Amino acid sequence: MTSQDEGDHRLLEAARAGDKEALTRLLERHQEQVYRFSMKMCRDPEDAKDVLQDTLLAMARGVRDFRGASSISTWLYTIARGFCIKKRRRSKFAPVEERSLDADAAPEASRVADPAKGPHEALAARQVERAIEQAIAALDPKLREALILRDVEGLTAPEVAEVLGIRVQAVKSRLHRARLAVRAHVAPLLGIPAAAATPGTCPDVLTLYSQHLEDEISPDVCASMERHVEGCPRCRGTCDSLKRTLAMCKAAPASQVPVSIQNSIRAKLQDLLADFS
């Protein structure tokens, strides 16, 4: 159990015993991750705010019934996903407006630049970041939620399966498709070697590497792939591009919850906690 899980467990036990302060702290610990998930799934800041508020209030109402069979994160993502689906169904006939995943974040000019990078490197990094955001946004919702939960939020494949209510193998299948689609979108910006593959000799290193991440290939197959990649510049560059893509997905910053929605949640929570004892 991680220190985060241990802290959550202590707060959960106190909250279930009627400690209002513990419940408030528990909600605050998870609000940014729920908001980030909601932003990436809903694609609209207003919908994401509603999902965050509804999720945290639902958690507060149901905390006494939660028995800890799942992690708190898994429980929260399950709740948030349900509200995201409701939002998507209600707006499916509305005009679609493409927005940046960081539409509600600080403008680019106000971001703190990395002093270790020159202006050209910083610009290239932002271009790749935007390309990854666009690639994730373009995924089918079923693929997008699997990738976000696994490769952005860091849940295990079984935990993702629990949130989505599907089999683990189905999660892995969606992950492989989503990872390859995102990587293909950003490949031109990642400097993939242009050398052509040798017909009949190069394995599908992208699928194999994705399967390796989910423990789906044997040690012998893994060793064979590593030997091939070591001697094939094209496949080595191709595999490295997927590694870089997934690393950037994992490095996605937490979305800052707007002060206005924090205040709204706090006010509604106070009303809810008036009867909490």
Rank of each mutant, 00 (worst) to 15 (best):
S218N: 08
L208I: 14
S110Q: 09
A170L: 03
E121I: 02
A17Q: 15
V96L: 04
M1P: 13
S264H: 03
E32F: 06
P115T: 09
A137M: 06
I261C: 01
S173Y: 05
R227Q: 12
R111A: 04
R36E: 07
G200R: 10
R234T: 09
I85F: 02
L27H: 00
L164G: 01
A109D: 08
C232E: 00
T55K: 05
W75N: 11
L57R: 07
H120P: 00
L101Y: 03
G231W: 05
A138Y: 08
A181N: 13
T74G: 04
A60F: 10
E159W: 05
D19I: 10
V168F: 11
G200L: 06
E21Y: 11
L190W: 13
L76F: 03
R144E: 07
E46M: 09
F83N: 00
S277F: 07
Q127N: 06
K268A: 04
S110C: 05
L57K: 09
D54F: 02
L123S: 12
V63L: 06
L123D: 13
L26H: 14
C222K: 03
R25K: 10
P203M: 11
P258R: 10
S255P: 00
Y209W: 14
S38V: 07
Q53M: 14
L56S: 03
R64C: 04
D50F: 02
E121T: 05
V259D: 13
A116N: 06
R36L: 15
I132G: 02
I166K: 04
A247H: 10
R167H: 14
P119G: 07
P158R: 10
Q33Y: 07
S277V: 09
S173F: 07
T74M: 05
H176G: 00
A106I: 11
R167S: 06
R244E: 12
E214T: 13
V152F: 08
Y77T: 02
A137Q: 06
L208S: 08
C222F: 01
I217C: 07
E28W: 13
S173Q: 15
D5G: 04
D104Q: 07
P199L: 06
